[in-house]
């Protein structure tokens, strides 16, 4: 699904923020990505959703070596990735429906299909009463649900979430985690960036831990239990 080999990343002539990153995500897996603020979580996610090219190393995504993939084929790969951004990045002048429809519009899906699916999904995330609301009129939690709906509208194979629980209270954070687990059970590969240690403890999924530009992989609770027995 996704594999990094000796990936290094620096912005411009700045210091190397990520060094020798090696890991592989199995299809259908779910991982936390953690590390202190400024450790490079967002940068690593950007490399995963092809918003950045690594300064060195190999990124393998969905059977493609990205450095060898022509630029014209990248949109097709990006459409199989859903991203929940830390600051949501909703478009203020578009309604909830239009925001969620964007990934489909971008992929040239028929408008009638779009209308049907988008409304259905927004009702499913509990925004049936706010279909035509503009993001600035929605609460933080509601905006986040729009952002999540947009990330999953095109049934991505890889779902990336950047600190999705950072700006919401614990109750909503938990509901969000259950939602991600639900999507994961349906086969979506998921990476959730967070520095919420309590959440890591509670859910016990395997963890990618960034420290000083390097990545450690900590097995999940289930794997550890399995290994112990």
């Amino acid at each position: 699904m996704l594999r990094f080999e000796n990936v290094g990343m620096r912005y411009g002539i700045g210091p190397e923020i990520l060094r020798d990153i090696n890991f592989a995500l199995e299809p259908g897996s779910i991982h936390f990505l953690t590390g202190p603020s400024g450790a490079g979580k967002t940068t690593l996610l950007k490399l995963m959703y092809l918003a950045l090219r690594p300064t060195r190393g190999l990124v393998h995504l969905l059977d493609h070596d990205i450095s060898l993939t022509p630029r014209s084929e990248l949109p097709h790969l990006r459409r199989q990735i859903g991203v929940v951004f830390q600051e949501f990045r909703l478009i203020d002048h578009l309604s909830a429906v239009e925001n969620v429809a964007l990934p489909l519009r971008v992929a040239n899906i028929k408008q009638s299909t779009i209308d049907e699916h988008v409304r259905e999904l927004l009702v499913w995330v509990g925004l049936g009463d706010h279909l035509d609301a503009k993001p600035p009129t929605l609460s933080g939690g509601q905006q986040q649900r729009v952002a999540i709906a947009r990330a999953i509208i095109n049934s991505p194979r890889l779902l990336l979430a950047d600190e999705p629980t950072g700006n919401v209270d614990d109750r909503i954070a938990l509901r969000l985690m259950y939602l991600f687990e639900e999507l994961n059970k349906n086969g979506t590969t998921i990476v959730i960036a967070t520095h919420n240690e309590a959440l890591l403890q509670k859910f016990g999924h395997p963890v990618l831990r960034l420290n000083d530009g390097e990545l450690d992989i900590v097995a999940g609770r289930a794997e550890r239990l399995e290994a112990a027995s």
């Binding site: 790969l77 478009i91 990934p103 971008v106 992929a107």
Partner: peptide, 13 residues
């Protein structure tokens, strides 16, 4: 730029 970036990341050609 922000919205263009977003569309790009979503897979807009």
């Amino acid at each position: 730029a922000a919205i263009i970036n977003l569309l790009h990341v979503m897979g807009a050609r």
